[in-house]
Amino acid sequence: MIYCQNVKNNKIKLWTRQHKNVLKEIEEKGEYIVKKDYIKEKNDTIADYYIKLYDWYSSKADKIVSRPEGVSYPIWLSTSKELSLQPVEGTVILELEVDIRNVVLTNFEKWGYVVNYWYVPINKEDEIKHKEELKKYNIYDESALIMSSKGNFYPLLKNKIINSWERIFEVNDKNPGMTQATIWQIKKEWIVDILYK
């Protein structure tokens, strides 16, 4: 079941901010896919951090919507025009209309937990229980369980955190503003509007 207000006739409207060269590539090639070099260039010194996250995300998202051959990483989009990233110098906002079968929906707030290498709780009670468990082991920075060798000493906790990340794929209609999307490519025919700065 799809929990987005802007789905009509199995199509969903999405918005993404991209470098202006992405639009040029779409116009020349008819499509755009993310390359590892783009992630490295955009994220500079923290690129490896994001590549590790995107590798995890891509392997999970591929089970929901299969990646086309030659595609490694997703393109991130907003499901709300009002909440989408605004244009900055050298960028464009693309408004797309995409068949819902090509879209992976995730919970924006839960993705924030994953980006910080935190446990994604089921609910408030579960979050409190998890924090109490960390406290019991004198762990005050749970991201260290993923980012450092500390996780080797607590493999069950480390796995518990990583396994919780799959909850980002649980979206609901109670808070549609917390829904975001990814697709594996942008096809020229999916673009319905281009907003320039």
Rank of each mutant, 00 (worst) to 15 (best):
K60D: 03
T45K: 13
K60C: 12
V34L: 04
L105C: 10
T179W: 06
H19K: 13
V65K: 09
V114A: 13
A47H: 10
K131C: 06
K131F: 09
E82C: 08
V104Y: 12
K136T: 11
R67C: 03
V115T: 12
L94W: 07
I39E: 06
S59I: 07
S84R: 03
W15L: 01
H130M: 14
E82G: 08
G30S: 05
E166G: 00
N116G: 10
D141A: 14
Y117S: 10
T179C: 12
V103S: 05
P155Q: 12
G70L: 02
R67Y: 03
T106A: 11
V171E: 04
V88K: 13
E109F: 07
M178I: 02
S72N: 14
D44N: 13
Y32Q: 05
M1F: 02
K150T: 07
E95F: 02
D141R: 14
Y73D: 03
I128G: 00
E28I: 01
K13Y: 05
V104Q: 11
I64M: 11
I93P: 00
E132I: 03
R67D: 02
S143K: 12
N107I: 02
S80R: 11
G30K: 06
I2C: 01
I93T: 04
Q86R: 12
E82N: 13
N102W: 07
E125G: 01
N172A: 01
V98R: 09
Y140H: 13
I186P: 09
N107L: 02
T182G: 01
G112Q: 14
P121H: 12
Y117N: 15
N21L: 09
K150Q: 11
L195F: 12
K36T: 08
N102P: 01
V171L: 04
V88A: 05
I46S: 09
K131P: 00
L157P: 00
K174S: 09
E89C: 05
Y32K: 10
E127Q: 13
I139T: 08
C4E: 11
A47N: 08
I191Q: 04
V65T: 07
E89P: 02
A61D: 07
E89R: 15
T91V: 05
K150S: 05
E166M: 01
P155W: 13
G30L: 03
K36M: 05
M147Y: 05
S143D: 06
S78G: 09
V22H: 06
Q185P: 04
K187R: 09
F169P: 08
N152E: 15
V88G: 06
P155S: 11
V7M: 13
